[in-house]
Write a protein that binds this DNA or RNA. Structure first.
Lengths: 202, 202
DNA sequence: TGACGATGTTACCGATCGGTACGTATGATC
DNA sequence: GATCATACGTACCGATCGGTAACATCGTCA
């Protein structure tokens, strides 16, 4: 019967088999971010992951659920980067923020930058009912609270206004990074943010 | 009303007068903006417009071309609003800009706001080869030049940096408007922009 | 070994996608 | 009335969409 399944030249290595669910998840993360969720079919995901469709649906139930899982991963990665910048400048919220902004501006200038996966998903699925959009909105609200707390710690006269401004700059960088290429408005993110912070904390 | 826009820089138009074409175009403009281009099928467009598919393809050639036409209309509407704000404050670029920003913040707070159709399209179609994306990128570059000129007119120490900051705030407002509802960061757009302008023109 | 549950695979579904071949109605002109 | 061009509709195409039923394989433990 099976002439080759036990000695498949490609997938034979029995040393450590990454679970199909994990491969699907990481593949979906890359494809969804790079091309958009609507643009990627489940067929391409399982093909790139080297598995098949039922494997996907036993682990995720639907494409929408997989998209939500992708955004949960994306959210987690975001906070890892954010907390790294925070940890790099203990007790100095302005430096923490500018550190993160600097890294973001760098990433936004790289070719293939596609903005924020969470924001992009809300653009792709306007209705707030989509499971992935709920993840996005929860993330953005959490970030807003965090920025407000940092603005307070900076001694801003109006922490909410400063936090609003910082979040506008963030979202603007996400969009500008993929609208313009290397030398877009995102290059000025740190300078502008610092100017805004200083003007708000005088 | 015989004055027709004679030259279109981006694409060739049928330029004549099939009646169905107009209904298709305005229907597509509403549906594409509200739901996104990928989310709307040509079937739904012609159905809502009360016509049939061949009528669409006789006037537009492809869905992508129709999307590009939608964005050209969107671009034109943008500049109408922008020039209205400019005309309202002759010789005062700061007031011109804050006027436009005020109107934008108002719109961004309304329910059903979906951000910038041009930006959204780039999010939906990452590749720069899409005809609609070319329209978007041309628009954004033109806007950037305009903002830089206004920043110069304001006497900014670094006009490019101020223009970058203003464009970041713009794009951030587009995104935040649909991410958050009524009381999102977009509410602080004018205050933040004014603060940034003042800090850049001292 | 042999039974069993978990996991992966083959082959397929109905629905919808963008797009088109071809016939029809109408109005102006000869 | 015959002709022709314009504008629109009917019916359909192959491809692909998200999703699923039924079968094959593997690891585990008795």
């Amino acid at each position: 019967m099976a002439t080759k399944h036990s000695s498949d030249p490609v997938h034979d290595e029995p040393a450590d088999k990454p679970r199909a669910a994990e491969r699907i998840r990481s593949t979906a993360r890359e494809l969804f971010y790079r091309e958009g969720i609507r643009a990627i079919g489940v067929e391409q995901i399982v093909q790139d992951a080297g598995v098949t469709k039922p494997s996907l649906y036993r682990s995720y139930g639907s494409k929408d659920d997989l998209a939500a899982a992708y955004l949960r991963d994306y959210d987690a990665e975001f906070w890892v980067r954010f907390e790294q910048s925070v940890a790099a400048h203990p007790g100095d919220p302005k430096a923490q923020l500018l550190d993160y902004f600097g890294g973001l501006a760098e990433r936004a200038a790289k070719p293939g930058y596609r903005g924020c996966g969470l924001t992009n998903t809300v653009v792709e699925y306007p209705g707030a009912d989509h499971p992935a959009c709920k993840v996005s909105q929860a993330h953005k609200r959490k970030l807003r609270k965090r920025l407000t707390a940092m603005a307070e710690a900076m001694g801003a006269a109006s922490p909410e206004t400063l936090a609003d401004g910082l979040q506008l700059l963030l979202e603007g960088t996400y969009a500008s990074g993929q609208l313009f290429g290397r030398d877009g408005p995102a290059r000025s993110l740190v300078a502008v943010a610092e100017r805004l912070i200083d003007a708000s904390c005088g």
